[in-house]
Write a protein that binds this DNA or RNA. Structure first.
Length: 593
RNA sequence: GGGCGCGUCGCAUAGCUGGAUAUUGCACCGGCCUCCUAAGCCGGGAAUCGUGGGUUCAAAUCCUGCCGCGCCCGCCA
């Protein structure tokens, strides 16, 4: 085996930011010469929009009025006055279209890439995502939350943050109440009869014996039954009321009803590489009394009001909430709390666990989330950051576990694996069955995740099998293939001791592009995190794979004259960047495919 | 009715903290495997950035009218 580079967990430096920082003193001298008196110009330097022209750019449009010259000629004057030679970070500095365009010196980039610096100690972040009601199997509508949430967890970790992935378990309330009532009152025969009568019985899934797939039938049957039989609602309501009083017996029965479902859901998520560090039950905040304390505290708010029947609310009209209902009810007439109230206590608790909170929520929770934030503010509790995503709908309508109008994730992942296997069978007939299965499972899972992670969260998705399972170029397999290719070369190169520096003069254009791409990794990651858009980092990763492939075509590691060590070094840097990029978005970086 | 979001080549998608020839993939057309994985590489055609107005030296990007789509507006969760 070749000497391996061990850069994991040591890449903390944003080289584009470093380039900006190192360019500023040199630019400042030039700008003073030209006679610009705008002290704000340093904040105008940013990443260049034209990646083929420059890494960073200074737009000169704002100086035009002051100097009475065209932006273009100002840019040219600045460029003429810049002493590039004195700055090791700066490569080319050129004027174009009113911009001062700066490219990093390739030698500087290469050096920085080869001597990474350790990440600084970071704050602790709690990312709460998924938190789906445990009433049935994971479906593709719920998957966007989990995939997005886990991608954030991974990206933050790749950026060196300490992250707790948190799942809020809704262990009280109507949904589990219905499930529990059904499990206790309906026989399997009854359930099957009810579902059959409504043509809801579907045992076509390979996973129909899995606990979550089994128990959702009881949930669906109870929902059908309660339309005709009012005693269902009565039974459920009694249970729900008791659960809200933290009745131990009822909470235990709820637990018994939903836990196998939750386990089934977590198994599905585990297959996608999605795991949690912490599970918190909603009932915990009733039991410890914190909900009651908060409700009492809210009465001191200036927004507080009381309804005729004794219910308590906050009037939010003055806080910019518009529409029919500006009242945020947090205590019912009978004195009990509501879901949102418990959410307040939950947030209060979360702040004891981390310095930053991020919630991943569907766009249907926007109003609710705003109300909760205002209430938190009234309680002097900080508000969390929230990432919203638009819904995934089926071509023929909205997904619903209750109505059985869903595509289950278990089935989607099966199908993804099968489709991937068809491809692997075709091009890797040399591999044994077990290996082929492992590869196709990794490809299927990665492709499914990437096809969601690469889309802007606020954009609605219409589920189509072809799209969800696409193995095309702009997808996970393309990236995985590039990584596997780099691994293959690493294996073939054998045990080599790698050079400690890169001779820039010998680099081909594709090699330079590759270095430039790698140098932007941390910047792209930081940017995607800052803007809450994982799709931006997905773009970088696709581009990284493409640049590696171009490099691979032109620059051979294994040649007739032996091993080209410089190209091997670039191959190893690429392999490392691809692997870390994959891990940051939930693609499995397999070593062979 | 009110609030929030979305509308970019045939399809999908990037860019939206104003700025340089609007990105990428699929599909379509044409090249490249005696050479480290062709799930690849190179080249080509294809876009009134939903639509009308405004702000600006500069608008896909900001403001606004309209059209279309989605989500929300429970003492539910």
């Amino acid at each position: 085996m070749a000497a391996s580079l061990h850069y994991c967990d040591t890449h903390g430096v944003d080289l584009m930011q470093a380039l900006i920082d190192e360019s500023i003193p040199t630019l400042a001298k030039a700008i003073a010469t030209v006679g610009i008196e705008d002290s704000n110009w340093t904040s105008m330097i940013g990443r260049s929009r034209e990646a083929n022209l420059a890494d960073i750019s200074l737009p000169c449009f704002a100086f035009a009025k002051q100097l009475g010259q065209s932006p273009d000629s100002i840019a040219q004057s600045i460029v003429n006055a810049v002493d590039v030679e004195s700055n090791s970070a700066m490569g080319e500095v050129m004027a174009s279209g009113g911009y001062v365009n700066i490219r990093a010196a390739t030698s500087w980039l290469a050096n920085r890439l080869l001597s990474p610096e350790p990440l600084a100690e970071s704050e602790h972040i709690m990312i709460e995502h998924t938190s789906a009601n445990p009433n049935g199997p994971f479906h593709v509508g719920r998957a966007r939350n989990a995939i997005l949430g886990d991608t954030f967890v991974r990206m933050y970790r790749a950026a060196g943050k300490k992250v707790t992935a948190e799942y809020y378990v809704d262990d009280m309330g109507k949904q589990v109440g219905i499930l529990c009532w059904a499990m206790e009152n309906l026989s399997e025969t009854q359930v099957n009869q009810i579902l059959e009568s409504k043509e809801l019985l579907d045992e076509s899934s390979q996973h129909s014996q899995k606990a979550d797939h089994q128990r959702v039938k009881w949930y669906q049957a109870a929902n059908v039954l309660k339309v005709e039989d009012t005693s269902v609602d009565e039974g459920v309501t009694t249970l729900v009321q008791l659960s809200e009083e933290a009745n131990e017996d009822v909470l235990n029965r709820f637990d018994a009803a939903y836990q196998p479902v939750l386990d089934g859901m977590l198994e599905t998520l585990g297959r996608m590489g999605i795991t949690f560090d912490s599970f918190t039950k909603e009932s915990a905040f009733i039991i410890d009394g914190s909900v009651e304390v908060l409700m009492n505290a809210l009465e001191k708010s200036e927004l507080h009001g009381t309804a005729d029947n004794g219910a308590h609310y906050l009037e939010l009209e003055s806080k910019g909430i518009k529409g029919k209902s500006t009242k945020f009810y947090y205590r019912r007439g009978d004195g009990s709390s509501l879901y949102a109230t418990r959410d307040l206590a939950y947030h209060q608790w979360k702040w004891t666990q981390a310095e930053q909170l991020i919630n991943i929520l569907g766009e249907d929770h926007k109003l609710q989330s705003r109300q909760v934030s205002i209430a938190l503010d009234e309680l002097n509790i900080p508000t969390p950051d929230v990432v919203f995503y638009a819904f995934t709908k089926l071509a023929d309508g909205k997904m619903s576990t209750r109505r059985g109008n869903v595509v289950y994730m278990d089935d989607l992942l099966d199908e993804a694996q099968i489709r991937a296997q068809q491809v692997v069978n075709e091009i890797r007939s040399d591999l044994d069955e077990t290996t082929i299965h492992q590869i196709s499972e990794a490809v299927g899972v990665s492709a499914t995740r990437f096809n969601i992670a690469r889309i802007s969260p606020e954009k609605g998705i219409t589920f189509r099998w072809e799209d969800a399972l696409s193995l095309d170029k702009d997808s996970a397999p393309f990236i995985m293939y590039s990584h596997a290719r780099a691994c293959s070369i690493y294996r073939r190169a054998g045990d080599q001791s790698l050079p400690t520096s890169i001779n820039v003069d010998e680099l081909s254009p594709t090699a330079i592009e590759l270095i430039r791409r790698m140098a932007k990794m941390q910047n792209e990651l930081n940017n995607a995190i800052k803007l809450s858009r994982p799709n931006l980092f997905c773009d970088w990763l696709s581009g990284m794979a493409a640049d590696y492939n171009r490099f691979y075509r032109e620059n051979h590691v294994i040649t007739d004259d032996g091993i080209n060590l410089q190209n091997l070094l670039l191959n190893e840097l690429s392999r490392d960047h691809l692997r870390r990029g994959c891990e940051a978005v939930g693609i499995i970086p397999i070593e062979e495919m």
